[in-house]
Computed example of a mutant assay.
Amino acid sequence: MKKFIITANWKLHGNNVLVCHFINKLKSYFDTNQIFSKIIFAPPVIYINNIKNQIQHNNFFIGAQNVDIHFSGAFTGEISIDMLKDIGVTYIIIGHSERRIFHHENNEYIAKKFQMIKSKNLIPILCVGENLQEKNLKQSELICRNQIDAILQLQEEDIFQNSIIAYEPIWAIGTGQTADIKHVNRIHKFIKCYIADNSNIKLKDIIIQYGGSVNFNNIQNFINSEHINGVLLGTASLSFETFINIIHNIDQYCY
């Protein structure tokens, strides 16, 4: 069966008490159950060290929610790729619609982050997706293609090797409105074929997660889908019971 990747993006949530309680329960679950899925946990950066020191598991990896484009310097409040690597981060989420909208990050800026992450042998999770107006205008594929083209224009034929794409339609993020599974499959297939046709990465090696109001009630739809290699969870990852139930459900079906 296919290897499924579960990414938890905690966004701007958490405190010491919540993190400690959550991680203790997660560690206990890992100690008493077989885990087959790959789990990437991306909390706010200040909690990364604490989490990494508590959980040591072959299928558990630490992710970061963002990275700056500079290695060092007078950039108050930013976190560099070297700092993230230094504390054990393996995966870094970039291009999330919240960064694109609220921090005005464009495709070219995100491509710089992508290239920087790859230069340090870390793994980018590149978020792509359209808003509701673009969807209604049937521009979903066009928008995703433009976002991917910014990476392809770096002119490195293996740029998408050892990377993850996360298709996150903006209109589905945090709204409770999950994208129709036929739509998701169509976009995932399009992205995979487009990358394969424009680089030297093989179709079977392209990994795409779906994100956008994924929860325990609809997770089965994504497990069953041919072109979906994982899920990027937001709200569903903040509840320990929901998060564990999703992991358990995926592990039971996929392995």
Rank of each mutant, 00 (worst) to 15 (best):
I35T: 14
Y29H: 15
K52W: 00
L18H: 10
H70D: 05
Q34S: 15
I87P: 13
I69Y: 00
T32Y: 01
A8S: 06
F41S: 05
I69W: 00
I23M: 05
S97P: 08
P43E: 11
K27D: 14
H13I: 06
N49F: 10
H21V: 14
I46M: 04
Q54F: 09
F4K: 11
A42F: 07
E98V: 07
Q65N: 11
V45M: 05
Q34C: 13
K11F: 05
K11Y: 05
E98H: 09
H70S: 15
F60M: 14
L12K: 07
K38I: 10
D82L: 11
Y91E: 01
I23H: 04
D31E: 15
G88C: 08
I79K: 03
S37H: 01
N16Y: 05
V45S: 12
Q56Y: 09
K25L: 14
F41W: 10
S80R: 01
D86G: 09
F60N: 14
T90R: 02
I40M: 11
Y47G: 00
I23S: 03
I93W: 05
Y47R: 00
K85A: 08
I46G: 03
N15R: 03
D31A: 14
P44V: 02
C20Y: 15
N33R: 09
I51F: 10
L18Y: 12
Y29L: 13
V67T: 09
N58M: 15
I79R: 04
K11R: 04
M83Q: 10
L84T: 04
H57I: 08
I94T: 03
S80K: 00
I46W: 00
K11S: 06
I87M: 09
I93F: 10
I69S: 02
T32R: 05
N15H: 03
P44Q: 03
N58I: 15
I87V: 15
S80Q: 01
W10N: 01
T7S: 12
N9W: 05
L12N: 07
N53M: 14
N15K: 03
K52L: 02
I51V: 14
I48V: 02
D68Y: 13
I5T: 11
V67E: 03
